[in-house]
Design a protein around this nucleic acid. Structure first.
Lengths: 196, 196, 196, 196
DNA sequence: CATGAATGAGGTTTCATTCAT
DNA sequence: AATGAATGAAACCTCATTCAT
C-alpha cells in the first residue's frame, strides 16, 4: 500500500513529464494525476528532481538487470542482440511515456555527473559495447569502434520516438508495427560481416 | 550592427540553452553573455521561447536549403548520402552547442504543431526519405521502409552527441574524429544491397 | 478563517487602491497590509485586476440588494429617495476608502463591457431612474429625463468625495456632517414640483 | 512650429490617457499618435506625468480665465451661472476626451498637494462658491453651504460623462443633446429660492 | 502519514527614460 | 531638435516546498 502510493506518484510524474517536460511539469498536476495531495509527494521524494532521478534509476536498473541476465544466459552474440532489440521495442510499446521521458530529459543527467543514473547508463552502453567487441573477436561482426556503434545502435532505435513525433497517430501506429523488423535489419546489416 | 546584435543574442541563448536547457536558462544570463541589457533581448524577440523557435527555424532553413541544393545537384544517390553525412559532421564539429540545443529541445516543437520549424523538420526528413526511395527504385539500395530508415539514419548520427555526454573530454575528441567514418560505414551497410 | 483571509486581502487592496490608485498599487504592499505573503493573494484572486473587479462586484451587489429591498418595501417615492440618500451617506462615512476606490477606478469597468460589475451598475442606476419615472407619473416629481437626472443625483452625491480631496481634514469632517442635509435639499428641490 | 509639436504631443497624450488611463498609457503610443519619436516627447516634457500635469494646468488656467472674465463682466448672478453651464457643455462637446481625462485622473492631483493644478482647481471652485454666496446675499438664491453646493453643481454636470459610459453611442448622442437643458433646470431649481 | 493553504524567492517581461548619432 | 535603440529597475505572478492540522 505504501509502495503503491510511491508508485502512483512516479507514474503520474512520468505522465506529466512526458507531456510537458520536466521543467514545465507542476507538482500540483503530478499530485492530481496520482490522486494524492501535493504534500504527499514530499513524503516519498525529496523534491521534484528526485522523482526524475528515481525514474531514470528504476528503468536503468531494470535494463542493467536485463543485460546481466542476458550475459549470463550464454546465448550466442547474434541471439543476444536480437533479444536486446526485442526487449527495447516491447518496452517502447508498453511504456511509451516512460521512454519518452528518458529520451527527453536525458541531458539532465549531466547535472549529476557522479550520480547513480548516469553511471547505470554508462554500464548499459558498456554491456552492448562489450557484446559488440565479443562479436568482433569471434569473427561474427565486422571490425568497428564498438563504443560508437553501440551508441549508434541506441540512436537508431530511439529515432522511432522522434519519428512518431512528426507523424499522425495512425502513421505512428503503423510505424510501431513495422519499426522493429526494419530496424533489426538495418542494424544487423550495419554491424555484421558482409555476407554474414 | 543591428542584425549583429540579434545574432549575438541568439548565439548567447544557444550557449545558455546548451548548458542548462531552455527552461533553466535565465534571460539575465543570456543578456550577460550577449553583452547587452536584459531589455534589449525583448527588442529583438517577443519572448524567451521565440529565441528557441528562431534557433530551430534558422538551422532548419539552412538544412533545407542544403538539401534542396543537393537534390538539384543531380549527384548519384550514393554521393548525395555521403555529402549529407559529411555536412552533418562538419556542422556538429563547428557548432556543437547549437546541435546540442536542437537535440535537447526538440520536444518543444510539438507544442507548436503548425509552426514553421516542425514543418521544416518534416521537409528535411522527407528529403532523405525520398532519396532513399529513389535509391531503392534504382536498385542501389535494399528494400526498406524509407521513412523509418531515414529517421534511423538521423538517430544514428545524433547518437554521437549522447555518446560525448558520458565520456571524458579526451574521449570525446577522439570520438568526433572517428565517428564520421564509423557511422558512414554503419549506415552504408545498413542501407545498401548485399554486396552493393 | 479561509473566507476571513480573502476578506483581509480585499480590504488591504481597497486601502492601497484608495491611496495610490489601482495601477500604482503594488501586490507586495497589498500583501503586507493584509498580513499575508504575496503568493497568498494569488490563492484567492487570479490577478490584481480580479481584486478590483471583486470589490466592484461585492459593493454593487450589496447596493442592488438594497435597492431591491427598498422597492419591495412599498414606501412612497419621497421616502425611498430619502432612504437612498441616507444609505449613501452612511456608507460613505463608514467606508470612505471603498467609495473612493469605486469612484477613482470606475473607468476600468469599461474595459470589461460584458462583465458583471458594469451590468450591476446599470441595474442600480436603472432602479433610481425608474423610481424617478414613477414619481413623475404619480405627479410627485416634475417632468424630466429620468436617466439624466438619476445620474446627476449620483454625481451630486459623489462630489462630496471630490470636495474632501481639496480641503483640509478638519474642513472635510465638517463637510461630511453637513453634506447629507445640504445635498438632500439640493436634490429635493431639483426634482420636485415647484411648491411640492 | 515648435509650439505646434508640443501641442501635438499633448493632444496625443490626451487621446491615449482618455482611452487607457494615465498609468496604462505608454509613451510609445503617445509618440506614435503625435507622429514623433519617443525621444521627442522628452524634449518637451520632463516625463509622462508632466504631460498630465500640463494638461490639467492648461485646462484649469483656461477655466480660471473664463471665470475671471465672467466676474469682471458684471452680469447678474443668474446670468453668470447660465454662462458657466453653457461653457461647460460646449467644452464637453468639443473636447470629450480632454474632459474624460480630467475626470479620470483627477485623483492624481492629490499626489502633488502644493502644485499649480490643484491650486487652480481650488480657485475655480472658489469662484463658483463665491458666486453662490453672492447670490444668497442678494436674496436671489436660497440659503445653503456654498462650498458643498458648488461641488454638487460640478458633480451633477460631470455625471453626464459617467452616463455616457454605460449607454450605447446612440443613446450617448441623445444624452449630450438633452443634458444641458435638463441639468440647467435641475441645478437651477436646486439652488434658487422657492418660486424664484 | 495525508493534507493543502501559505510561503516567498526568483524569473520573465514591461516600459519610462536616456543619449549617442 | 529629432531620433529610436538601449537600458535596467521594477512589478507581476508562479510554483516548489513547507508545516500546522
Amino acid at each position: 500500500m505504501k509502495e503503491d502510493k510511491r508508485e502512483r506518484i512516479r507514474d503520474a510524474a512520468i505522465s506529466v513529464f512526458a507531456e510537458k517536460g520536466f521543467s514545465e511539469a507542476r507538482a500540483d498536476e503530478i499530485a492530481e494525476r496520482a490522486g494524492v495531495a501535493v504534500g504527499t509527494i514530499y513524503n516519498y521524494f525529496a523534491n521534484k528532481e528526485a522523482i526524475l532521478i528515481d525514474i531514470f534509476e528504476a528503468e536503468f536498473t531494470r535494463l542493467k538487470e536485463f543485460y546481466q541476465h542476458l550475459r549470463r544466459s550464454g546465448l550466442p552474440v547474434v541471439e543476444q542482440i536480437r533479444q536486446i532489440l526485442k526487449e527495447h521495442f516491447a518496452r517502447l510499446e508498453e511504456r511509451q511515456e516512460l521512454i519518452r521521458v528518458l529520451q527527453r530529459e536525458r541531458f539532465k543527467l549531466l547535472e549529476h555527473p557522479g550520480a547513480e543514473p548516469l553511471e547505470l547508463y554508462r554500464e548499459i552502453v558498456a554491456y552492448v559495447e562489450e557484446l559488440l567487441r565479443e562479436g568482433i573477436e569471434n569473427g561474427l561482426l565486422r571490425e568497428c569502434n564498438p563504443r560508437i556503434i553501440a551508441h549508434a545502435l541506441f540512436g537508431a532505435v530511439e529515432s522511432v520516438t522522434h519519428c512518431s513525433m512528426i507523424c499522425s497517430p495512425e502513421e505512428s501506429q503503423q510505424l510501431f508495427r513495422e519499426a522493429p523488423e526494419e530496424l533489426a535489419k538495418f542494424i544487423w546489416r550495419g554491424i555484421t560481416l558482409e555476407g554474414g
